[in-house]
Design a protein around this nucleic acid. Sequence first.
DNA 1: GACACCTGTCAAAGATTTCTGACACATCTC
DNA 2: GAGATGTGTCAGAAATCTTTGACAGGTGTC
Lengths: 128, 128
Amino acid sequence: MPEVPPPAPTGDALLKILTALGNPHRMRIVAALVENRTYVSALAREIGISRPLLHMHLQRLEAAGLVTGTLEAADDGKTVKYYDVTPFVCELTPHTVARAAATLTDDGAGTADRGAGRSDRGAKEEAK
Amino acid sequence: MPEVPPPAPTGDALLKILTALGNPHRMRIVAALVENRTYVSALAREIGISRPLLHMHLQRLEAAGLVTGTLEAADDGKTVKYYDVTPFVCELTPHTVARAAATLTDDGAGTADRGAGRSDRGAKEEAK
DNA sequence: GACACCTGTCAAAGATTTCTGACACATCTC
DNA sequence: GAGATGTGTCAGAAATCTTTGACAGGTGTC
């Protein structure tokens, strides 16, 4: 079959995606960015949350590879940070979850890589 | 049978699925149940977590509709609770997330006032 | 009866996540 | 300069999730 199967992310990557998307505010952020790209302050006004809070949510989404932020210069020269959604595709089935769980690096004892670990993975798309 | 498109869960349902799957232990539970169905105590030993903890995780998974538990009688007559995975299919893309976000009943204000007393919550948005 | 399994629930501690209010800095307009 | 807009970060409170240990049953075997 010529069908190209989904990228099948690693366990940690899938976990990051799930925890990133598992939040009403972040789901709405993705929804808003699908409609049209915006910058941080405008998006905060649109959704109705504070800038610091939105900043945190955007960081979480970006860390999961679901959105990307670019610092651009507006017409008047002011620097604005625009965000776009990544065209991610992730199929969730018992099999894909099981496959991802096999590569989890979390031993359950709390060896979670919180804030550490440099990841050069800009896109999960080619992961295999 | 022709191609059946994914059911497109409601916002709250998808959120439940995502938060249920967004946990290393629960991902491993699904993985273990995909291999072969078991009962609670055996599963707890297999994964290496306590029974009360596993019980909570299973409840969360069952509440999201990802697994189902059935109280059965073993050969010797002892009652055992077996768990099976539901053959769920959920496609995660910017579009599906956006579509689901539109039906979220969480007003983001923390007020668990599901679907009641609807009024303009964005009153302060235009106050600028 | 004593033991070994199974089932479930509870309260309380521990660890994350979420959220708010300030702060500091830059650019453009009046 | 003052004011409005944009950027980002920080500490600490508040809410939620995770985890443990103890408890209260049930059934079958020795």
